[in-house]
Design a protein around this nucleic acid. Structure first.
Lengths: 167, 167
DNA sequence: CCTCCTCTTGAACAGCAATCAAGAAGGGTC
DNA sequence: GACCCTTCTTGATTGCTGTTCAAGAGGAGG
């Protein structure tokens, strides 16, 4: 279903099931045979994007953390509509909520795998969350290139010092 | 219009203009005399909440920054639906977009006013944005009490060291 | 030929945000 | 009292939305 382009480009609410079906060359009904819901369809699109992202991520794991973050932000900014919609609908759609927590869990593991030392257990969750939220803000808000670089640097710096300052 | 409770409690999409009107004891039409749009109505509700928040904020400015942040998060978490909706609709509604940028400008000024020293100009925007996004994440995501405290501490700590490390 | 399963569809449903023309309520002026 | 103007409210309507349902097409296996 390459018609996911519509959801990414125009957003969730501006993309009706009719338009989606028209773009796919089928009747609006047909979509409900493949997806239970419009939210279910959104999850499928987001999940597909996440998997291609994780596959590409292997190409930058050698670079410093700040660069990796910048790469991640650049990849996710084109789908900021999806990011915003997921956050908006997770309170209303269990499917999206579940996918969202899974997404954050995945991010946590990726972060942990790229740190030289593990973060002390009592600080780990908050530190990782702070970095994640900083990057999420950089994706969803309209910030210029310099600020984006600054945000990635801040998130990486904070995470690195948390990973080296033991005890 | 105390019927703003519906928007806060049930969210934007689950709250139809009909329900809103019914709660206010008028016909759905009548709302369109006072507000141009449903988005316009949302902005009015959000703006009213923002003003009461700013008025109450004076009572905690004496406390340390981390405590102020925690207070802010506690105040905004009940209206997380509004926060998520604003972020979701600013791409589609100019009124909401404008209000959103104004909100962030206001936050920036509040942050700046509560720092002992000004942050160097080349870092200020990114540092303030990082703190803001960290707190926004704490509001909109389901994190436990300990993590919330940790996030507020991280945001405050980062901001304070940025404000003291000159040159 | 019959049956089962996969897939697609036209028609219909209730609900939505928004519009429009019509009118009620009230005050100011002659 | 009769006129007008402004402020506010409403019933009726419009085009769209996500979703459901019963009906049927197409092919595979026995």
């Amino acid at each position: 279903m390459a018609a996911a382009l519509l959801l990414v480009r125009d957003g969730y609410e501006a993309t009706s099931m009719s338009k989606l079906a028209q773009h796919a060359g089928v009747a609006p009904n047909t979509l409900y045979w493949y997806f239970q819901d419009k939210d279910d369809l959104l999850v499928a699109v987001a999940d597909r994007y996440l998997h291609t992202l994780l596959a590409e991520l292997g190409t930058v794991t050698a670079e410093p953390l700040a660069e990796q973050f910048h790469w991640l932000v650049d990849r996710l900014r084109p789908v900021k509509h999806l990011v915003a919609t997921v956050h908006n609908r997770l309170a209303v759609s269990p499917v999206i909520d579940e996918w969202h927590t899974g997404f954050h869990r995945t991010l946590e593991q990726v972060f942990a795998a790229n740190l030289p030392h593990p973060i002390p257990a009592d600080r780990r969750v908050a530190e990782v969350a702070a970095a994640t939220f900083t990057l999420e803000g950089a994706i969803t808000h309209a910030v210029d290139a310099d600020t984006t670089r600054g945000l990635c640097a801040i998130a990486a710096d904070r995470l690195m010092t948390a990973a080296t300052a033991h005890g």
